[in-house]
Lab assay of single mutants.
Amino acid sequence: QNEKLANELKSLLDELNVNELATGSLNTYYKRTIKISGQKAMYALKSKDFKKMSEAKYQLQKIYNEIDEA
């Protein structure tokens, strides 16, 4: 289960640069939040902690959705 979550989180991290570029014309909230979420996700992957990875995955998905809707 950890392996599956780690792969999903890696996949979301692969999209980080594209989504970060998409924040160029948006409010600074999005820029700041996506950077923080990305850092948390990288830390969670290194720690291999299921709870941290779950939270990081949720945060990344949430900010990606917010950027898409903005």
Rank of each mutant, 00 (worst) to 15 (best):
G38N: 04
E15H: 12
L60I: 03
E3H: 06
Y58V: 10
Y43F: 11
L45E: 01
L5K: 02
F50L: 06
Q39V: 09
K31T: 05
Q59W: 15
N27S: 14
N27M: 06
T33C: 15
K4E: 09
L5S: 01
I67C: 03
K48G: 14
S37K: 07
Y64W: 06
E66T: 04
Y29C: 11
E69Y: 11
E3R: 08
Q39I: 14
S54M: 14
K10Y: 05
K31H: 05
E3V: 07
N19Q: 12
Q59N: 08
Q39S: 06
N19V: 14
E20L: 15
K40Y: 14
I36Q: 08
I67H: 02
S25Y: 09
E20S: 09
K31R: 10
N7G: 09
L26G: 03
K46D: 08
N65D: 10
M53F: 02
E15L: 15
L16R: 03
E55D: 08
D49A: 02
L13T: 02
Y29N: 03
L9F: 01
E69K: 13
A70N: 05
K48D: 05
N2T: 14
N19Y: 15
K48A: 06
S54L: 15
S25Q: 10
L26C: 08
N7I: 11
Q59V: 08
N17Y: 14
E8P: 00
M53P: 01
E15K: 14
A70M: 09
G24H: 15
T28R: 13
T28D: 14
I63Y: 02
N2A: 13
A41Y: 02
E20G: 06
V18K: 15
V18T: 10
L26Q: 04
E20Q: 10
N65E: 09
N17I: 13
Y29L: 04
F50S: 06
F50T: 07
K48S: 04
K31Y: 09
S37E: 12
A6P: 02
L9S: 01
E3W: 09
F50I: 08
Y29T: 03
N7E: 12
K31I: 08
K57T: 04
Q39G: 04
L5E: 02
L12W: 02
L21N: 06
T33K: 14
D14L: 11
Q1A: 13
Y30Q: 04
K10P: 00
L45R: 00
D68F: 15
Y30D: 02
E3L: 09
D68V: 14
A44Q: 01
Q1D: 13
A6L: 08
G38W: 15
D14S: 08
A56V: 03
L60N: 00
A22E: 04
L12D: 00
N17S: 14
A70Q: 07
N7C: 13
K62R: 09
M42R: 13
N17D: 10
K40W: 11
D14T: 08
K48L: 12
Q59H: 07
L21F: 07
Q61W: 06
I36H: 06
N2G: 09
L5H: 01
A56W: 03
D49R: 02
G24A: 14
L60V: 01
E15S: 11
A22V: 08
S11P: 00
L5A: 02
Q1K: 09
K48I: 03
A56C: 03
K48C: 10
A41K: 00
I34T: 01
K10H: 04
K10R: 13
K10C: 06
Y30V: 03
E69A: 13
K48T: 04
D14K: 11
A44M: 01
Q1N: 10
K35A: 09
N19G: 05
S25C: 14
N17M: 14
L45N: 00
N7M: 13
A22R: 15
L16M: 06
V18W: 13
E15A: 12
N7H: 10
I36A: 09
L60T: 01
L5V: 05
K52G: 04
I63S: 01
N7A: 13
S37W: 15
Q39W: 11
L21E: 08
N19S: 07
N7P: 02
K4L: 10
E8D: 08
L16V: 03
A44V: 02
L21Q: 09
E15Q: 15
A6M: 12
L26T: 03
E55Q: 09
K51N: 10
T23Y: 06
K52T: 07
K31W: 09
K52Y: 05
A70H: 05
N17H: 14
Q59D: 07
L45W: 08
L60D: 00
I63F: 03
E66W: 10
L60Y: 02
K48M: 14
Y58D: 11
Q59P: 00
T23S: 09
A70W: 10
Y30R: 03
M53Q: 00
D68G: 12
L60C: 02
A22W: 08
Q39F: 09
D49P: 01
D49V: 04
Q61I: 13
Q1V: 12
D49H: 03
L13V: 04
S47R: 04
K35M: 10
G38V: 15
K4Y: 06
Y64I: 13
T33D: 03
N2W: 15
K10A: 08
Q59R: 07
Y43G: 07
T28S: 14
N2M: 14
Y64Q: 06
K51E: 11
K46N: 08
K62P: 00
Y58A: 13
D14R: 12
A41P: 00
K31G: 06
F50N: 06
D49N: 08
K62H: 06
N7T: 11
Y64S: 04
K4S: 08
Y58K: 12
N65H: 12
Y30F: 11
T28A: 14
E3M: 10
A41D: 01
K52M: 13
E66S: 05
A6I: 11
K35S: 06
Q61A: 07
Q61K: 07
I67G: 02
T23Q: 06
Q59F: 14
K46I: 12
D49M: 03
Q61E: 11
A70K: 07
K57P: 00
G38P: 00
E3K: 07
I36Y: 09
L16C: 04
L13C: 02
I36V: 09
L13Q: 00
V18L: 13
Y29D: 03
L60R: 00
A56Q: 02
E20N: 08
Q59T: 05
A22L: 14
E3Q: 09
N65L: 11
S47M: 11
N2Q: 13
I36L: 10
L16H: 02
S47F: 06
R32Q: 10
E69I: 12
K46G: 05
L16W: 08
M42P: 00
G24N: 13
T23C: 09
S11E: 11
N2C: 14
S11M: 13
L13M: 05
K46V: 10
S25W: 08
E66N: 04
S47V: 08
E8S: 05
K62A: 06
I34R: 02
E66F: 07
T23H: 06
S37V: 15
L12G: 00
L13R: 00
K57H: 05
L60P: 01
D14Q: 11
T23V: 08
N17R: 14
Q61N: 05
K4R: 11
I34S: 01
S25M: 11
S37F: 14
Q61Y: 05
E8H: 03
E8R: 03
M53L: 03
K10D: 02
R32E: 12
S37C: 15
S37T: 13
L16N: 00
L16Y: 14
K57A: 08
S11I: 11
